[in-house]
């Protein structure tokens, strides 16, 4: 009787600890500091920025993105040549090494969203999902802002 009682208590404590651990758990691959630059409602495109953290022991390969409000989403890189000319190129995949993070920032790597309907407004936090070659999709709320956080 006493043994069954302690067993039940033990199971309950274990369950509570598991739930507590889950609630406080931080994902090993996660999106941080995610935001979209606010643009006019007639704008054909908008850019998104974030930091992708990889706390695993393996590299993760980011391959693309999607959002319900955008007909097309791509990963792009803005580069500047020696004469100050900026150009954009499509990133087919981006590798984040094990234990490192990679920032997508204005004037550099960024998420490009096109064919938007509707164009999200400043203050909104639409969901954007990132797709990987070797990890489940990650979705996060991207805050629409006029300026960099």
């Amino acid at each position: 009787m006493l043994k069954r009682f302690f067993s039940a208590v033990s199971r309950t404590v274990s369950a509570v600890l598991l739930v507590a651990a889950s609630a406080g758990a931080v994902a090993d691959v996660r999106i941080e500091q995610a935001w979209l630059r606010a643009v006019p409602p007639v704008s054909p495109s908008m850019a998104g920025y974030f930091v992708l953290v990889n706390d695993t022991d393996e590299p993760v390969v980011l391959t693309g993105a999607r959002a319900e409000f955008a007909g097309m989403a791509m990963l792009h890189d803005t580069s500047t040549d020696g004469e100050g000319r900026r150009s954009m190129s499509h990133l087919k995949e981006v590798t984040i090494p094990a234990g490192e993070s990679l920032a997508f920032t204005p004037g550099g790597r960024h998420l490009m969203l096109m064919k938007m309907d509707p164009v999200p407004e400043a203050g909104e936090t639409p969901k954007v999902c990132l797709a990987f070659q070797n990890h489940a999709d990650l979705c996060g709320a991207f805050q629409v802002r006029h300026n960099e956080p």
């Binding site: 630059r37 495109s45 850019a47 792009h76 204005p106 960024h110 096109m114």
Partner: peptide, 16 residues
């Protein structure tokens, strides 16, 4: 206006 990264940022800064 179809430029998503630099141009809207410049427009926003000039406007500011």
């Amino acid at each position: 206006t179809h430029c998503p990264d630099i141009c809207p940022a410049v427009l926003a800064r000039v406007s500011q």
